[in-house]
Design a protein around this nucleic acid. Sequence first.
DNA 1: CTGAAAGCGCTTACAG
DNA 2: CTGAAAGCGCTTACAG
Lengths: 339, 339
Amino acid sequence: MKTNHITQQDIADRLHVSRITVSKALRDHPDISAEMKEKVRKAVEDLGYSPNLIAKQLTLQKTFTLGIVIPDLENSFFAYLVDSIIDAAAERDYHIILTVSREKELSERNNIMNLIGMRVDGLLVCVSQHTSDRKIFEYARKVRIPLVFFDRAIRGMGFSYVAFEDREGTIAALNQLISRGYLNIAHFAGYSNTSIGSERCHGYKEALANNGIPIRENWIIEGGYEINDGIRAFEQLYATGKLPEIILAVNDRVALGAYKAIRRTGMRIPEDIGVVGYGFNESAHLFSPTLSVINQDPIKMGKIAASLLIDEIQGNTPSSHSEILIQEDFHWNTSVMKR
Amino acid sequence: MKTNHITQQDIADRLHVSRITVSKALRDHPDISAEMKEKVRKAVEDLGYSPNLIAKQLTLQKTFTLGIVIPDLENSFFAYLVDSIIDAAAERDYHIILTVSREKELSERNNIMNLIGMRVDGLLVCVSQHTSDRKIFEYARKVRIPLVFFDRAIRGMGFSYVAFEDREGTIAALNQLISRGYLNIAHFAGYSNTSIGSERCHGYKEALANNGIPIRENWIIEGGYEINDGIRAFEQLYATGKLPEIILAVNDRVALGAYKAIRRTGMRIPEDIGVVGYGFNESAHLFSPTLSVINQDPIKMGKIAASLLIDEIQGNTPSSHSEILIQEDFHWNTSVMKR
DNA sequence: CTGAAAGCGCTTACAG
DNA sequence: CTGAAAGCGCTTACAG
């Protein structure tokens, strides 16, 4: 069964005018008389006309659509982020086509090609963990499609980038903890070949070094971003015999894994050991005790990335290669004892 | 700065053939010689040709795109759902345009109109809580666009619908609890004018009635789907003086609110009071103690809804008005003491 | 104030 | 094996 859409021609036929007249009336062109516009308005109503945006896009060579590429929607950080991108885009009359790479480089590539094929006006991408080939981004560059990276980027290609001031945020948070007397802090790290993993780990090391605290290599446990990685990391740490006062987990899923593993040993949070993660308020409050976090606001990031991209699309930007770093602040919640 | 896209004409020019030849070669048409196809393939590579899907869609009168309308992406149930729709759609070569209504009827209407304007091949919608006007859905009917409701629907309009077998699932779960001796069960209900709220509440009442347990009206506390609603409900219940053994919360956010409010009183879960919610494993395991849930698998729902819709689009379906109910099973986790 | 022409980038019968 | 014609539904100068 075919769908049943009315065209401008149908309206024109009914009113015995040309379709150009209808097109103009619809866009409130000064050429057209008020009476004619009113007639058209009525016919639109009666017939249930819905303008074919595809045709409009082809004609205008603009789609008013943004393509998003994210690694994973099941991570609530990204869900909030996408939600805020949708809002920010809608405010400026853009739609969103959403694609998910599932952290696979191949899907990422296909998604970007498809989005370019759909002629989205711009691309918002958070690269997958394993992306190493820059070819697809060189292609994006070649066809001159505006592209903004957020949260995770391929650097040095001249695309704009929105990220958190991760290293600074880490240092500030740890300084605060250290000044309260917490000198024994371990780090469950991500991978050092991702910008997030390496920035956070560097921040950790720098903070300790700045405060003259020696770094114990077996207190830095590298290995992934999932719940199980947090469990494994704690087990490994536990096996060393000597436990820290606080664990700095590279993200909230790893922190959750740490919670689970800690509980299994019978230890209590925060009395026996404290946990600090990176995250945002809504997700920190799903933990009990509520997770202390170096705060990363996905809503703020989404807004900034979307408007940066739209500015580039509309040519409001001086440089098309801005790098925006969002400040982080430490939220001291109940997963760390107040001192 | 304009984008820089190659067209079939550009390829034709370079190869000194007509664009029709190129078009045919690209779709592997038998008309075209193997050598010519090879030449075209090479030119595509060299020039970086990316087919303009907009033009293709206009010509074919098909977009291979599904429009999604959900109330809220920040609810992880929906995030998982959308993710699984994206996957299921991708498997059959469909894209997704995602819109979020934020539970507002007006946004919902605008989103649907836009999606129809974009000429998506079909619509997947979960109606907002407050939708009362059917006009937009009558319009969808009129233009004959395939539409499948999921999770929440406007009934009686002849659209297909995928939902959970909520009442049965509730009854089965409560039977299990009652047979273990839990006779005092309260219900934090949603709104009775939403299908979810009323189905769950009916299931609750029926289960008690079936087991000859009198219904205490002040143990049914109606009022919303958010964390704060759960907090408020528990405070109200607590004020009555007489507490149940188990609280059946209408969803996981309300359950989380109950957790928080319970903790504030110094009571322990599950020793002093148990909590049961509706949800899915991934979200239940974010709770500690892990939440016992009447299981609702968003991934299953997404897959079913997407393939039902695509079947309707492709005309593989006998009736375009199927109603699919997904079975629920009870996951007895640590938020209720084992008896 | 109204309309004819050309074009956006593609595909699909139909000829040759 | 290759191409000319018509069309998808819209918009935008340009005439009248």
